[in-house]
């Protein structure tokens, strides 16, 4: 009995030692054009000098899950290493005709739509592999969107810590309060990924939340 509990204790200690050495898989989820890649780019550029992917006004610019390994974020004397995972925006509809409004040619629009649907499936598959997730929302849009609620519900069911980021807070139409009201059980951080506004609060929240990783 005593031998068993000693064994269990060492197992736990070693498991924790190795767990701490592993990079934290930090996922960026949210609807299309909310600024997931812009935020991931901002962090990667600040700490590695390189970006993770391209950004565009055309929705579904990110159509594959993109990674950046070994991103060491140093903040207020603390340091943590993350594997950044930028995912395609999740939605329930993809219509190639939407891309035509952005002067994308029909053939390209159709292929973009096909890639976008595959990207959404890939995003959902990756939910299981996250340690911590940042939900990036456009603070000028209505947050009461079923896809947002569904994704958060899935993360809660998987016991994955969630941080909600209200991006584009620099815009006049931004309504941070509406996002806070929509998700009262979560920390909501208003930022501008484009201008790097309020990122200190963001890092602070990520570091705090990373303690809740199971």
């Amino acid at each position: 009995m005593a031998m068993k509990s000693v064994k269990g204790f060492f197992k736990k200690v070693f498991a924790n030692v190795f767990k701490n050495k592993k990079d934290i898989r930090l996922g960026f989820y949210g609807p299309p054009n909310a600024g997931k890649t812009s935020l991931a780019n901002r962090i990667c550029k600040d700490f590695t000098g390189e970006e993770i992917g391209s950004v565009s006004k055309v929705p579904h610019e990110t159509r594959n899950v993109q990674f950046k390994e070994k991103v060491e974020i140093s903040y207020k004397g603390k340091s943590m290493t993350f594997k950044m995972i930028d995912t395609p925006g999740i939605t329930t509809r993809v219509d190639y005709e939407e891309f035509l409004k952005y002067k994308v040619k029909k053939k390209e629009a159709k292929s973009r739509a096909k890639e976008a649907t595959q990207g959404i499936i890939e995003s959902i598959k990756w939910l299981d592999d996250m340690d911590l997730v940042v939900i990036v929302l456009d603070s000028t849009e209505n947050p009461y969107n079923q896809v947002n609620i569904t994704i958060i519900g899935n993360l809660v069911a998987r016991k994955i810590p969630v941080l909600i980021v209200a991006n584009k807070s620099d815009l006049r139409k931004a309504k941070l309060k509406k996002i806070e009201e929509a998700f009262p059980e979560y920390d909501v951080i208003g930022i501008s990924a484009k201008y790097g506004k309020n990122l200190d609060d963001f890092y602070d929240a990520v570091f705090k939340l990373s303690k809740k990783i199971k």
């Binding site: 329930t92 509809r93 219509d95 649907t117 595959q118 959404i120 959902i124 899935n154 069911a157």
Partner: peptide, 26 residues
């Protein structure tokens, strides 16, 4: 919750395979 995400996945898989189907609103 996992069925809701599965619904989104299956919806995406059907776009382009079912005529005039562009997804759903939920």
């Amino acid at each position: 919750p996992d069925e809701e995400t599965r619904l989104i996945e299956d919806t995406m898989a059907m776009i382009g395979h079912v005529k005039n189907f562009k997804g759903i609103e939920l």
